[in-house]
């Protein structure tokens, strides 16, 4: 599925200083019953965001109008648990384009890159700085620069670089897709398949 190209993102951010945010919190299993990829943002963080009767929980960060933006900042081990890509879809559909944490679960990270969300891994110290900066001023902006592989707290100029392999970087900057790449090597794959013992 096509996604928006990612180059430089300047935005306020939503802080979620919780460790081990798992995919069952991002999107509970009972909301995985669709056969199309649409509307998952409505149920993003469903049980943290809404009471059982559907009314919003006022103390949850997404229900606090002070915080907004296209960047979600989470605690260590963000996205652990299930392989459901629905978790990444829900984050994208809600309007986030970038998730920042000091540590991502592997499958979530791969899923994010495949659908056009940039996972930015920063040091624990820089993550703390981001949380403190947002706490001090919810309107503070971050700049995520994919070509330069930097993340900057614009108010102070404090900056860190982040890692991403050049293949995935190129994909995200151009909206390219792994499947098109692989389909272009069909013959090479077929030859490989024919040589498999089983």
């Amino acid at each position: 599925m096509a996604y928006d190209k990612f180059t430089i993102l300047k935005s306020t951010a939503v802080p979620m200083p919780i460790e081990n945010v798992d995919t069952d919190q991002i999107i509970p299993a009972r909301f995985l019953k669709a056969t199309k990829r649409e509307g998952f943002g409505d149920n993003l963080f469903r049980d943290w965001r809404y009471h059982p009767d559907g009314s919003p929980k006022e103390d949850f960060i997404l229900n606090n109008p002070i915080y907004s933006g296209k960047i979600l900042v989470g605690g260590k081990n963000f996205g652990s648990g299930s392989s459901r890509e629905h978790a990444a879809w829900a984050i994208y559909d809600y309007g986030f384009r970038c998730v920042v944490s000091s540590f991502f679960a592997d499958i979530f990270k791969g899923n994010s890159l495949n659908i056009g969300i940039l996972p930015v891994q920063v040091s624990p110290a820089f993550l703390d700085k981001i949380f403190l900066a947002i706490e001090a001023d919810p309107q503070t902006e971050l700049e995520v620069n994919l070509p330069e592989q930097t993340i900057t707290l614009l108010a102070t100029g404090e900056q860190e670089t982040f890692a991403i392999n050049s293949y995935k970087k190129n994909n995200l900057m151009n909206g390219y897709d792994d499947i098109d790449y692989l389909r272009a090597m069909k013959e090479e794959i077929a030859a490989f398949e024919a040589a498999r013992p089983y």
């Binding site: 890509e85 499958i107 791969g110 899923n111 495949n114 792994d178 499947i179 790449y181 692989l182 389909r183």
Partner: peptide
């Protein structure tokens, strides 16, 4: 190992996925 839906599509279409070696 477990994969996301984009990768399910990838495997159906090409029997391959793109994976950095852990």
């Amino acid at each position: 190992f477990g994969i996301g839906t984009s990768e399910v599509e990838m495997v159906l279409a090409t029997q391959c996925i793109m994976q950095p070696k852990p």
